[in-house]
Nucleic acid binder design. Structure first.
Length: 573
RNA sequence: GGGCGUGUGGCCUAGUCAGGAUAUGGCACUUGCCUCCUAAGCAAGUGGUCAAGGGUUCGAAUCCCUUCACGCCCGCCA
């Protein structure tokens, strides 16, 4: 597979170092750092070699540098303060990078050939018992972004929502729908808001009349044993709430490929088969009719190392069904990636242990995220301290509209609304995607709807500027072989564009969305400097063509990075 | 009590996996720049014991140990 030019440069530098070190009879892993600006592009520190060679690091660096002849992508090798510094052949890098970006357009950053590996990204999977709130919004945004990145990195990706239509919460809601009447108006004319009222009321009624617990238990039993009426009603209610939830997600540019219903694994008896297999395990014990695995030897620690996989009445628990689901998943994919809240860590450890016990080698890979809280504390639907995702989306679009109106007087109402939607949703997604998943975040309106600095609009704005130049440029010579760039602004921008393929594959490999978000921000900042200091349309001759090529390559790179983040790139704003 | 995660200027944050050259950006604050390709921008400035302590190393935000703070978990719930 052909590497991008910067990777080729890096490999050539590594190879040259390998040879030089062999000549010196020195042994060292070859790790290249990014050199500080003005000292080349890649740096090799020679300090670890000092003891081995009994020479000063600086002398070693000098020696190594003198043994490496510049060739192909390596333009210059020199040494300074114990480092061997490599400079890339800039003209070659610029030429192939820009040609590639301009030729491949929306595919720039993606490998020429698709990878055969299938990856199934399970995300969101919230209980279909009510609207999604901001605390849970991290899940679909991280999941969808990761899926987009993996796709751009060349994998065959499917996204999946696991619909929990079996557990107690769903039964509570369905029981409420069957036996209660709503006594409040839903906050929105949407099924998730309508049905959550039944769920909430059922919980309240049960608190007041604990004797109804038996009825709930019976319904749960009926559901799990395939009672047609219970199954039908539950499924219908869940389906409606689910449809409403996916409507909310689609507002954030999130579309899910598959929905797998948990009840399927109960109905097709795969859960029963797993229970039987687990019962045959040496780790299995029984207590009052309920079965559990003793998982202490699997690294499970805490007060309780038992994992119960059946209730006393023989019915399955959540993780047991999840086990059946994962076994099904592995028949359909090579790699399973799950996006989960950090509260699922123990359950996933138990699931991994159980998979080992029944002899399944594959394990799901999990991306955990910490919860989003509000300044006044934990989000809680019951206590009413909650921000619904729909409200956040509305507010984002509304605030973006105010900003558009401030700046543009020449646009039609429709156009302004369209830009507001793109900018508002972008700001929202960006603010989630930009932060490492493991960091807990406190939701603040002013951060979530930030339109300047580190934000989607900042990146979108750079893209719109690029589009504006290209639109005004008229005809220019795209095939020009001479592309000279003399300013640091241009050269730095070219190098950033050249690094995009590597950034995408690293984000994919490490399952990190925030790295791409940071890259997009840096690229936009670099483009804005270029825009400010280097005239494009007023330039003449080959310089103009070269700069236009740089603008076009920037535009595609910004657009592709935004697309990986699930953020639309408006041509004007 | 135990397990896992997080801790970087007033606030948010990158860098931590693979230790390397003056610790990245942003917000806020101060000050400049729109007869010039869109000022959602650019430039300059103020602000840091990288939670604390110890250790390893030529070199530690990064690795090891201890402590502290915060979050999540330790259900026959999901």
């Amino acid at each position: 597979m052909a590497d991008d030019p910067f990777t080729t440069f890096k490999k050539q530098a590594e190879e040259a170092l390998r040879k030089a070190l062999a000549e010196l009879k020195a042994e060292s892993p070859i790790v290249l750092d990014k050199a500080p600006s003005g000292m080349g592009d890649l740096a090799f520190p020679c300090f670890p070699l000092a003891k081995q060679l009994r020479k000063a690091p600086d002398a070693i660096a000098k020696d190594i540098a003198s043994r490496i002849q510049p060739h192909d992508m390596i333009d210059k090798v020199d040494s300074k303060a114990g480092y061997v510094n490599f400079s890339v052949s800039f003209d070659r890098l610029a030429k192939s990078t820009l040609n590639e970006a301009i030729a491949r357009k929306g595919d720039y950053g993606s490998p020429e050939r698709k990878k055969p590996t299938r990856i199934l990204v399970e995300h969101t999977s919230v209980n279909p018992t009510g609207p999604i709130h901001v605390g849970r919004a991290r899940n679909p945004i991280i999941g969808d972004t990761l899926a987009r990145i993996l796709r751009h990195a060349g994998y065959r990706v499917d996204t999946e929502f696991y619909v929990n239509d079996v557990g107690r919460q769903v039964v509570m809601m369905t029981w409420g729908v069957k036996h209660l009447t709503a006594d409040a108006k839903p906050e929105r004319d949407k099924d998730d808001y309508r049905y959550v009222l039944f769920y909430q009321k059922a919980n309240k009624v049960l608190e007041e009349k604990p004797e109804l617990e038996k009825e709930i238990g019976q319904m749960l039993y009926n559901l799990e044993h395939g009672d047609p009426e219970t199954v039908r009603l539950t499924h219908e209610v869940c389906e409606r709430v689910l449809a409403a939830i996916t409507d909310t997600l689609s507002r954030l540019n999130i579309r899910i490929d598959n929905f797998t219903w948990e009840s399927r694994f109960v109905a097709d008896k795969s859960v029963d088969r797993i229970i039987e297999r687990l019962k045959g395990s040496e780790f299995c014990h029984e207590e009052g009719g309920a079965y559990f695995l003793e998982l202490e030897s699997f690294g499970i620690a805490g007060r309780e190392t038992k994992w119960f996989f059946t209730r006393a009445d023989g019915t399955s628990v959540y993780t047991t069904r999840d086990l059946a689901y994962h076994m099904d998943k592995f028949t359909r994919t090579d790699t399973a990636v799950n996006i989960l809240g950090e509260d699922h860590k123990l359950a996933m450890q138990e699931l991994a242990a159980a998979l080992s016990i029944i002899g399944v080698e594959k394990k799901p890979e999990i991306v955990y995220y910490a919860f989003v809280s509000l300044p006044e504390g934990k989000m809680s639907t019951r206590k009413g301290i909650v921000v619904n995702l729909d409200d956040l989306v509305d507010e984002a679009m509304e605030r973006a509209y105010e900003e558009v109106k401030k700046r543009r007087t020449d646009l039609s109402e429709d156009k302004m609304r369209d830009i507001s939607r793109i900018v508002g949703i972008g700001a929202l997604r960006y603010n989630i995607a930009r932060v490492q998943a493991e960091k807990q975040i406190v939701f603040k309106w002013e951060d979530a709807l930030n339109f300047e600095g580190t934000s989607a609009p900042f990146i979108q704005y750079a893209h719109a500027r690029a589009c504006s130049i290209l639109e005004k440029a008229g005809d220019w010579d795209r095939g020009s072989s001479e592309r000279r760039f003399d300013t640091d602004y241009e050269r730095a921008l070219v190098k950033m564009i050249a690094s995009f393929p590597t950034v995408v594959s690293e984000c994919a490999e490490y399952r990190k969305t925030h790295v791409l978000a940071v890259f997009a921000q840096d690229l936009a900042a670099q483009f804005n400097q270029f825009y400010r200091f280097v005239p494009v349309l007023k330039a003449e001759g080959p310089a103009r063509d070269a700069r236009l090529a740089l603008v076009e390559a920037s535009m595609w790179t910004l657009r592709n990075a935004l697309n990986c983040l699930g953020i639309e790139a408006p041509t004007e704003m």
